[in-house]
Amino acid sequence: MDFWTEIPSLGKRDLRDLKKGIDGAFKKFSRTYGDGIEAFFDPLYFFLVRLEKLLIAAPWPLILVLVGGLAYLGSRSVKLAIGSILAFMVIGYFGMWKDMMATISLISVATIMCIAVGIPIGIIMSRYDRVQSAITPILDLMQTIPIFVYLLPVVMLLGIGRVPGLIAVCVYAVPPVIRLTNLGIRLVDKEILEAAEAFGSDYRQKLFSVQLPLALPNIFAGVNQTIMMALAMVVIASMIGVKGLGMPVLQSIQNQYLTLGLMNGLAIVALAIIFDRVSQRYGKRLQAHRYGKEHE
């Protein structure tokens, strides 16, 4: 034993006891409270299942009209709307319609959850420097920690299925919307804020009539990133039993089904591109006033 070659470390037995202790405590915690926590997320589960069933049960032409319409409303681009409809038709033609609907329902619910949680957190962060410096490292952790590390405790608590999948997706996808909400509000022109103050605005008036509207392009860039990251998690979420386009990709890895993997993979890419372009164009339209263009 030489001081210079061996780093001081906990003994093997102590280390094993430590791990065992924490594992045991968590297991006990999940056994006692697991059901309660699961029940807490029940409404989410029902919402997710309802939406999925609704999308699958809806007549396909209706969905196509809806997709085209939403794409047009978001982007005001006929090209993009037609492109989206075509992509959906091709995906359906190759037998991936149901999986795609499942994925869309997951992404939609995940995005809504991320916005509902992320924007308020971002607002609080922008108001208090202390909160910002406390939350920033947590966001770093959420974005860099290997997904499997938190997938396991989530599964231990909630079992496998849609809800733990959704939570795993949200943990990974929520940081951008939080960060960009915070950043967007902090970047609002100090002089405009000063003007709002000079006319006697209180905090709420400043937030809703100046800060949030002016931060909107940034917030929307965050939402766009959140959608993209949620889509990237589809395959990993399928490992804990989330249905959708990720599942066949996972199967193809396990069974070397080259074409199956490729087709579903490309379908995810197509969805990603559609979501990205539509939401980006929408975000750009939000700041049209900055360029002095005529408004519609």
Partner: peptide, 8 residues
């Protein structure tokens, strides 16, 4: 204000 500070 000098730089107007209008709400854009």
């Amino acid at each position: 204000f000098q730089k107007f500070a209008l709400l854009p």
